[in-house]
Amino acid sequence: MYRVMVVFGGRSGEHEVSLASARSVMEGLRKAGHEVVPVGITREGRWLAGEDPLRELEAAAGGNAGSPSGPPALAAHRPPAELESVDVVFPVLHGPYGEDGTIQGLLELADIPYVGAGVLASAVGMDKITMKKVFAHHGLPQVRWVELTRRRWQERRKELLREVEEELGFPCFVKPSNLGSSVGISRAAEPGELAAALDAAAALDRRIIVEAGVDAREVEVSVLGNEAPEVSVPGEILIRKGDFYDYEAKYSEGGMELEAPADLPQETAGEIRRIARTAFEAIDAAGMARVDFFLERRTGRVLLNEINTIPGFTATSVYSRLWEASGLPYERLLERLIELALERHAEKKRR
């Protein structure tokens, strides 16, 4: 059994999602017999270690700024000293400053094994524009898309509106390039909505991506492994709230349902799994990832949407539920991820 540091919270807009994931991960690790060292990061970037940093962050998220009773937690803009005494770190930080290679770089400098993708794969997987360029290099099928920057949009509004309309048409989807989990995504059905969507995305990120809308089913798979990744059965996302799979549909109660396994032809399911494995390897991912797809209703064509290197990780999240449907229960999934982290760290040592 191992001493596992679970790091959660963080500075991104997915702070609360991270807390929910962390609670499930820590419960699963304890059930498996591991010693858990919980470490929280506040929205301001302070690291909390002590008796119950999760409860402290949950209290703050609920509007209660007071700390729990007991010894005071460490509160500093630096990792806690416990980092040097753990066997492996399990980052459960969604979005920027956690899923983008930043904490992975810190752990690389400290020479500590950690669960999940390394610096390069994390950064590429976080940046939608760079990710799509890598996928295009590998010949993977995707929706049509256009990239622009905040400055270009501010200086050439009419020209860019015309360019997007000619290249993609309507409806289209506007996304900040470097925010995760459907944060800041807007659907535009006409030029006025497109301008408002670009303004909203530009307020959140310097780089913006616009994607063509497609009439499609949304299908996802989970990937697990290092050099020889395995892919779960596909699951279909059935949206119950809203017009598309936005943040509210993803995380609000009753916003979506997962059908796993998805009702797909065997050939289509095999194609989705093949593309997911290629995408995982294309960015040099490790440990885990969830890969999202569009399946066009009219043509049946499979289109790769994106890869997430730190997916939601509660026992009822899509990533873990797809492995459950594939015959791998939650606690065993956590065990396997720790094994993969230690294997990868040992492999690096042999350089």
Rank of each mutant, 00 (worst) to 15 (best):
S85Q: 15
S85H: 15
S85T: 15
V86Q: 02
V86K: 02
V86A: 01
V86I: 12
D87V: 08
D87Q: 09
D87R: 08
V88L: 08
V89Q: 02
V89W: 00
V89P: 09
F90E: 05
F90C: 04
F90N: 01
F90K: 03
F90H: 12
P91A: 07
P91N: 10
P91L: 06
V92L: 06
L93I: 04
L93P: 00
L93H: 02
L93N: 04
H94F: 01
H94D: 01
H94N: 05
H94Y: 01
G95C: 06
G95A: 02
G95S: 03
P96V: 00
Y97P: 02
G98D: 03
G98Y: 00
G98V: 01
E99K: 03
E99D: 10
E99W: 04
E99N: 07
D100F: 03
G101V: 04
G101H: 06
G101L: 09
G101D: 11
I103S: 00
I103Q: 03
I103H: 01
Q104I: 11
G105L: 12
G105K: 12
G105T: 07
L106H: 10
L106I: 15
L106P: 12
L107W: 12
L107R: 11
E108A: 13
E108V: 12
L109F: 14
L109W: 14
L109N: 13
L109C: 15
A110P: 12
A110F: 14
D111W: 10
I112E: 00
I112Y: 07
I112A: 07
I112G: 03
P113R: 02
P113W: 00
P113H: 07
P113S: 09
Y114P: 12
Y114D: 08
Y114K: 08
V115E: 05
V115S: 09
V115Q: 09
V115A: 13
V115W: 03
V115R: 11
V115I: 13
V115G: 11
G116S: 14
G116T: 09
G116H: 13
G116M: 14
G118V: 10
V119L: 11
L120R: 14
L120K: 10
L120S: 11
A121I: 04
A121Q: 07
S122M: 06
S122D: 06
S122K: 08
A123G: 12
A123Q: 05
V124H: 01
V124N: 04
V124F: 00
G125A: 13
G125K: 07
G125W: 00
G125Y: 01
M126W: 03
M126D: 07
D127I: 10
D127F: 09
K128S: 11
K128P: 05
K128V: 10
I129L: 12
I129M: 06
T130H: 11
M131H: 15
K132V: 12
K132P: 12
K132F: 09
K132C: 11
K133H: 15
K133W: 11
K133C: 08
K133Q: 15
V134L: 05
V134W: 03
F135G: 01
F135R: 08
A136G: 09
A136I: 02
A136N: 10
A136D: 14
H137W: 14
H137L: 15
H137G: 13
H137N: 14
H138M: 03
G139D: 13
G139K: 14
G139E: 10
G139H: 12
